[in-house]
Amino acid sequence: MKTAAPPTRSSGRDSRPVLLCLSHLRWDFVFQRPQHLMTRAARDHEVIFFEEPLERDVEVPRLELSAETGGVTRAIPILPRGTDAVAAQRALLDDLLEERAGRRLVAWFYTPMALAFADDLRPDVTVYDCMDELSAFRGAPPAMLDMERRLLERADLVFTGGRSLYEAKRDRHPRVSCFPSSIDTAHFARARGGMAEPESMAGIARPRMGFFGVIDERMDLGLVAGLAALRPDLQLVMLGPVVKIDPASLPQAPNLHWLGGRRYDELPAYLAHWDLGFMPFALNESTRFISPTKTPEFLAAGLPVVSTPVVDVVRDYGEAGLVEVVSSAAEMAEQADRLLRAASPAWLARVDAQLATNSWDLTWTRMAALIRGQRVTQPAAFPGAGAVPATTLAAGAPHV
């Protein structure tokens, strides 16, 4: 099987280490943890972002390669309908890496299900960046937990996307490091200055309370509907793609505005014209371990935030007085009223002090140091490697 060569930045053989990122998330869906880290890794690695396959009306499997902003090569397996997805992906991946033989290889897993076709890899370093408890998400494959056990057996390093995940994984591997959701402060701080109002909000009155991110089973739609009913003068602006739930289930009201997804570079302009941010997460199995990336992003934009009591939000931001934590629509309405009346310069100073300790650049620097310090390994096949389930689809739920 052949792969199409992506655009190159220079001629000659690339001698940089290869970082193969095996992801259940699409590169162009929501710009979040994988995109932040991989664009930084691409400064000194050849980063290949290997996505889940797409079935198309083609005769033979091929790998669609494209050069993305930030220096990352996106790789999408394009498979004939009804083909053996595991065998086809394995062959495409083997061809891709054969062209890079002899260079240091880091295999970076976001989904354990990728072992179905990547179990024969013998990288120099294997990283499992556990950004979510995928087994708890709607549509998770039954084999997810067993595949994660197998990945933990062969990983050299395990990173977690928050404290709750760290506590859940730390006794399952000898080298687990906690790297919570980080922040590109300069990007979101643009919202504090003058930015043109997006056209899609031109007819929406003030005050405005906004949410941005994936809209799925992790959102408490009942709370959103209740808040809209309690405060009909408060405009609730909802940005984000609707995933794994029926769009018809979204509550409707004159002050509820479902605007759909927006690009990462568009977000500061929206936040610049909101008065408050809110995070109406449901409290269920799918939110038990989340560490929402949008928490520091709201704060960098200078927006007061009201959130339901997600554990990592409470411990990392609520207890520090940076985010208001509530348990019901009535409490959220009361806190929104209070925050709209009382802006606090002291609160913003505390926010900036907290954000100054954290950045995606710093997170990647620390991760890269651990990878460089890892000895070159050639792990033996893990137990049961020959019986890897054929299912390749991961939970598919994006980070928040």
Results as ranks from 00 to 15, higher is better:
P247V: 08
T308P: 09
A380K: 09
V243T: 11
P254L: 11
A387Y: 07
D146I: 00
D233H: 12
V400N: 10
T391N: 12
D265M: 10
P174N: 05
Y128F: 15
F289A: 11
R263G: 11
W347M: 04
W364C: 00
L97I: 06
V125P: 06
G161Q: 00
R26F: 04
F179E: 12
Y128N: 00
R372A: 15
G240Y: 11
W258Q: 02
G162Q: 12
W347P: 03
A228D: 06
G12L: 10
A116T: 14
R150Q: 13
P141S: 10
R218V: 05
T365P: 01
G302N: 07
R263N: 09
D171N: 13
T295H: 00
I215C: 06
A118D: 08
H187Q: 12
M131R: 11
D44E: 13
A385Q: 08
A196L: 12
D216Y: 12
A85E: 15
P34A: 12
Y317V: 00
L299C: 07
A116N: 14
G139C: 10
L256A: 03
P61N: 01
I290S: 11
L54W: 11
P7V: 13
R175F: 07
A118V: 13
D129E: 13
P268G: 02
L92Y: 03
A394K: 05
V214S: 15
V30M: 08
R172Q: 15
T69K: 14
H399F: 05
S291E: 03
I290H: 02
V18R: 08
P247A: 12
T69A: 14
L152C: 03
A116C: 12
L92H: 03
K294D: 02
L145A: 14
V86P: 07
P345S: 08
E197A: 14
Q252Y: 06
L22A: 09
K294S: 01
A225T: 04
L63R: 03
A107K: 11
F281M: 14
Q354S: 03
R341H: 13
V214G: 15
L267G: 04
M201G: 09
A229D: 13
P77F: 11
S344I: 03
L271G: 02
A191M: 10
G260S: 03
P17Q: 07
L115R: 07
P389N: 00
D246I: 15
R175G: 01
L157T: 07
R341A: 15
S66I: 06
Q89R: 14
G162L: 02
D124W: 00
L96A: 09
T391Q: 14
R206C: 10
R13H: 12
L271M: 15
L227I: 14
A67R: 14
E167N: 15
L303P: 04
T160A: 05
W27Y: 13
D233C: 01
N358E: 03
M201I: 15
W364A: 04
R190S: 06
P141D: 07
T73L: 15
T111Q: 01
G210Y: 02
K2I: 14
A118P: 08
A41H: 09
G222W: 07
L65I: 01
R122L: 11
A272Y: 10
D316T: 05
Q89H: 01
A41C: 09
A87P: 09
D94S: 13
V86M: 09
A75L: 02
T83N: 06
A88K: 01
E98P: 03
P80H: 00
